[in-house]
């Protein structure tokens, strides 16, 4: 399996249904609980404390973006968070998390973090999500809304050769 096939397999995830599903409203008061739940799962499956913190941060940023930009701060719209625990295939513990909403659709190619050299408030969330996760892919959800697929392995993703670690 080459690198692109591996990444596609990580993005697609297991064939079975999610191990955990969180059905929440777009109310910011639930963000801390959602973040804590995912961090707790990450810890239980054996991710390092650094990886747990990174997963929690990515989930929080992603949900903030759905509420703020997708739903324009509406607090009564649906968000689904689905979690798969990935089998250890010699690459350490892993999580696949899919976030779906019914918000306004955006061309995924237009979703990108801002230039970090341009120091100003805002626009950092997408950059952080992409930086801390092994996979972060946006797509339009049928028939409405958006889907974000996130994958995090505790060690470098399967496409990274062990010899390259720490190089």
């Amino acid at each position: 399996m080459n690198e692109s096939e591996r990444r596609e397999a990580m993005r697609r995830g297991p064939l079975h249904g999610p191990d955990l599903t969180l059905n929440m409203r777009s109310d910011p008061r639930f963000l801390t609980g959602a973040r804590g739940l995912i961090a707790s799962v990450a810890e239980k499956i054996g991710l390092s404390s650094t990886s747990c913190a990174q997963v929690a941060l990515a989930i929080d940023e992603a949900l903030c973006n759905v509420i703020r930009h997708g739903y324009k701060k509406r607090s009564d719209a649906p968000i689904w968070v689905m979690v798969w625990v990935l089998a250890d295939e010699g690459v350490g513990a892993g999580l696949r998390i899919v976030i779906e909403d019914e918000a306004e659709q955006v061309d995924p190619s237009k979703i990108r973090g801002r230039d970090l050299a341009d120091v100003r408030p805002g626009g950092l969330g997408v950059h952080i999500i992409r930086e801390v996760m092994d996979v972060a892919e946006y797509e339009m959800r049928s028939p409405v809304g958006m889907r974000l697929t996130l994958v995090k392995y505790d060690r470098p993703s399967p496409g990274v050769e062990p010899a390259a670690v720490g190089a």
Binding site: C64, V119, R120, P121
Partner: peptide, 14 residues
């Protein structure tokens, strides 16, 4: 702290 908090500090820095 996440990016809304960081953004507040960037505003303060400006």
């Amino acid at each position: 702290m996440n990016t809304p908090g960081v953004a507040t500090l960037v505003e303060a820095l400006q």
